[in-house]
C-alpha cells in the first residue's frame, strides 16, 4: 500500500513514535497502532459474545455495556484521532453524551415513577372487560 520501504512493526522508531510518517497538518496513525486497535476490538467482540452465553442476570447488561464502552472509547481515541486532536473535539463528544444521559435518565425516572398508575389502569380495564 505504501510506496516506501516498510519498517517492521517492531521497529523501535515506530514504537517510540518517531517513524517516517509525517503530515504537515495532523498526526499520522502508525500502522501497528491501527492493527493493534482493530485486534483489540475484535477480541472484545468475541469476549462480549462469549459472556452473553452465561446466565449473568442483571450483570449481563453491565458486562455488555462495559465492553461496548471500552470498544467505543478505543474507536473514538484512536480511529477518530481524539487522542491527538484539539481537546475541544473530545469535549464536544463528551458534552453530547452528557445530554444523552440527561435525556434518557430523566425520561426513565418519570416513566418508571408512573408505570404503577398505568399498570393499575390496564388491570382495571382488563377486569372491566372480563366483567362485561
Amino acid at each position: 500500500m505504501a510506496s516506501h520501504a516498510e519498517p517492521s512493526p517492531l521497529d523501535p522508531h515506530l514504537v517510540t513514535g518517531h517513524g517516517h510518517d509525517h503530515n504537515p497538518i495532523a498526526h499520522v496513525m502508525p500502522k501497528w497502532m491501527l492493527i493493534a486497535v482493530f485486534s483489540a476490538l475484535l477480541a472484545l467482540t468475541a469476549a462480549t459474545v462469549y459472556f452473553a452465553s452465561f446466565e449473568l442476570g442483571n450483570y449481563e447488561v453491565l458486562v455488555a455495556m462495559s465492553i461496548a464502552t471500552v470498544k467505543a472509547v478505543l474507536v473514538a481515541t484512536f480511529f477518530m484521532h481524539l487522542k491527538y486532536d484539539n481537546p475541544l473535539n473530545a469535549a464536544i463528544l463528551l458534552f453530547s453524551l452528557i445530554f444523552v444521559g440527561l435525556f434518557i435518565g430523566l425520561s426513565i425516572l418519570d416513566t418508571q415513577s408512573y408505570r404503577g398508575d398505568v399498570d393499575e389502569w390496564r388491570a382495571n380495564q382488563a377486569s372491566e372487560a372480563a366483567g362485561d
Binding site: 505504501a2 496513525m29 500502522k31 491501527l34 476490538l41 484521532h81
Partner: peptide, 24 residues
C-alpha cells in the same frame, strides 16, 4: 466484525491520504 474492519480500512485510508498515497 465487518463494520470494525471497515473502520480499520477507513482509518488506514486517512493515514494514506495524510501521506499522499493515492492508490492506497
Amino acid at each position: 466484525a465487518v463494520l470494525l474492519f471497515s473502520s480499520l480500512t477507513m482509518a488506514w485510508g486517512v493515514r494514506c491520504a495524510m501521506l499522499g498515497q493515492r492508490i492506497g
